[in-house]
Design a protein around this nucleic acid. Structure first.
Lengths: 242, 242
DNA sequence: CATACAAAGTCATCTAGACATCCCCATAAA
DNA sequence: TTTATGGGGATGTCTAGATGACTTTGTATG
């Protein structure tokens, strides 16, 4: 029996006991962004091999509690975000009101002909050219979601040329004087498709939450943007309030 | 360079190369239920330490590709199921049509007063006693989902006394001659609550998909059962077809 | 034939040590 | 002042070996 409560005769694996102790300490006295003691220090403190500490920390990593940073240390993450999806949901605003830093980068920007669901939801003819804009959103510098936006390109050509990142809602408001309103939201869950897993930095088998939504012009009520968002399931808890 | 493609000078970690090779082999020539070679055999084959093999297999485990069985071996799992949620969705039937074995066990069976959403969705008065039946569903002997069923106990007292597991739809059909129809389905995602994580055998932080649904009598159209299902997110892909 | 027990096979955990890789910062060089 | 370089400290990877725990199987015993 050591000072720190690791007991080798209890039947419970030492690394799991350490996981529990660390998790407890993190919850009670660490904030997101804090660094754990180094593996060597923890090994000394618990009187175990560094591998045992690594095994314990592996558990915390897979539980989403901490993140390893090569050469730097092991940092405590925040809990999964409660992301309300409603009429006035705006990515950047929502997250920043929670005190999070956000970052939007453009993955791809191509013109495609509207087909099927895209054309129907945007209320335009098949084959009408739409801009497909794919953005990667990061929260606190870690991948959060990937969004595919579909916007009629003829109606809003500025998007293709002028939009370079940041809040899309703000762009519409400032450049085009259009307020967007979320009209419909559909959620499913699936395995990541295409490059999503690598952008989101998750294994191919890790689930993502897919939310399809339509943004309409608050005044004219015309559909302006159709988007498909894929969230990392471990970083978000969606709550729907239609 | 060895016979099996592990290259130690490529910069890529040996264990990751082995993960990739194993994953490839599993996809191309293993079926669900097959066992991998033993860790010692793989260590010999790739000429690495058993710890390195374990590290590689750890990756497959966390990717949901295989599962370790203490003392027995490492078994290949099936891919995530595509679970369609529609009017005629029935758990047992749906899964068995996919060639899966299913098992339903009862976790809890208590009488509670209907409140809020339960009362509203079942169209009964507040405080009306309802049977809360919690069941754990397994597919291929592994936890798949936990369901909380709410059923007006006065209207269908047989459920409390006679239902002992198996298909609830079949019970209603056979004992009460009632065909159930799924009326409404709402999906969200969240962190497991209460004992769900331990029943589903997932870490507390692993997301679950929550589906609320109402089953109505196909003839009288009266709501009969309200249920909240929590699926393991790594085992299912829900597709909604209202 | 059935049960009990022993042995072998397999995964689980832990230790010890070595070297690689990456980050950060201080100091030296341009 | 700015850029390079190098060292220390952190995590990442790999090896080697020992022991524990659980499962299966075969054998002995009743």
């Amino acid at each position: 029996m050591t000072l720190y409560g690791v007991n080798r005769n209890t039947g419970e694996a030492v690394y799991l006991q350490i996981t529990r102790i660390l998790e407890q300490e993190i919850k009670s006295s660490y904030d997101a962004g804090d660094y754990l003691s180094t593996e060597n220090e923890l090994a000394g403190r618990f009187s175990v091999n560094r591998h045992t500490i690594r095994h314990a920390i592996d558990e915390l990593v897979s539980a989403g509690v901490v993140e390893r940073q090569h050469g730097r240390g092991t940092v405590v993450l925040g809990a999964a975000l409660n992301y309300r999806v409603g009429e006035h949901t705006r990515f950047t605003e929502t997250l920043e009101s929670l005190g999070k830093t956000t970052d939007t980068s453009i993955i791809r920007k191509i013109i495609v002909p509207a087909r099927g669901g895209v054309a129907r939801r945007l209320n335009i003819d098949n084959e009408t050219p739409v801009l497909m804009l794919e953005t990667l959103r990061k929260v606190d510098d870690r991948p959060f979601c990937v969004i595919s936006h579909f916007i009629p390109v003829n109606a809003y050509p500025e998007i293709e040329t002028d939009y370079l990142g940041g809040s899309l809602h703000a762009f519409f408001k400032q450049k085009l004087n259009i307020s967007l309103l979320r009209k419909e939201s559909l959620a499913t869950a699936s395995i990541p498709i295409g490059d999503d897993a690598s952008y989101l930095q998750i294994p191919q088998s890790f689930p993502v939450l897919r939310v399809k939504s339509i943004n309409i012009d608050a005044v004219s009520k015309h559909p302006i943007e159709y988007s498909i968002t894929r969230f990392r399931a471990d970083r978000v808890q969606l709550s729907f309030t239609p």
